[in-house]
């Protein structure tokens, strides 16, 4: 049992993109703020802070979650993947490469959320059809593209991932 009073902090351990962070955070602070401010990973964006736009989506233990709708203390001892954890050094993740090839995005603000949701979508359903892609990505808002290029990007990602798997011995 622990009780943390107003203004006090609590220790949390977050493993973000494979790196362990031992942090002291006030319980009221959102996971998104802690990722951005305490850990310094600003690729995760805040679009609405009330759980609708999806820009702040990260993977918590492999599953997509709105980081604005989690307290950092709720994420204690979890493994978190953010947009910064997708590429392998300079080598883009196939989903990033696919979005590049499909001209997926414009202003880039919603992008991290879409990419993380796409990672989750394709891990659960590696061959989604267009309407499944649209339904699954409906928790992420984009104001620039009209979505078509993003859906195209997911389809391209499916091909790239299949190719990558086919190439493996």
């Amino acid at each position: 049992m622990s009780t943390t009073n107003v203004g006090d902090s609590l220790g949390v351990v977050l493993t973000i993109n494979g790196k362990r962070h031992m942090l002291e955070v006030e319980p009221r602070r959102s996971l998104s703020d802690v990722i951005r401010e305490d850990v310094g990973l600003t690729g995760t964006h805040l679009g609405c802070e009330h759980g609708v736009c999806g820009a702040c989506t990260v993977l918590v233990d492999g599953q997509p979650a709105r980081s604005c709708l989690m307290l950092a203390v709720q994420a204690d001892e979890t493994e978190i993947t953010t947009i910064e954890g997708l590429a392998d050094g300079d080598e883009l993740h196939p989903i990033q490469q696919a979005m590049h090839e499909s001209h997926g995005f414009q202003c880039g603000f919603c992008t991290p959320g879409f990419l993380m949701s796409t990672v989750a979508l394709l891990s659960e359903n590696p061959q989604p059809n267009r309407s499944e892609i649209r339904a699954e990505l409906s928790g992420n808002l984009c104001r620039c593209t009209g979505y078509q290029s993003i859906v195209d990007g997911v389809e391209t990602a499916v091909s790239l991932l299949n190719e990558a798997q086919g190439n493996q011995p």
Binding site: T42, M99, G108
Partner: peptide, 13 residues
């Protein structure tokens, strides 16, 4: 895309 797809963009926030 190189920066915007990898979380390396720099927005005012």
């Amino acid at each position: 895309d190189q920066r915007l797809l990898t979380g390396k963009g720099c927005y005012v926030a």
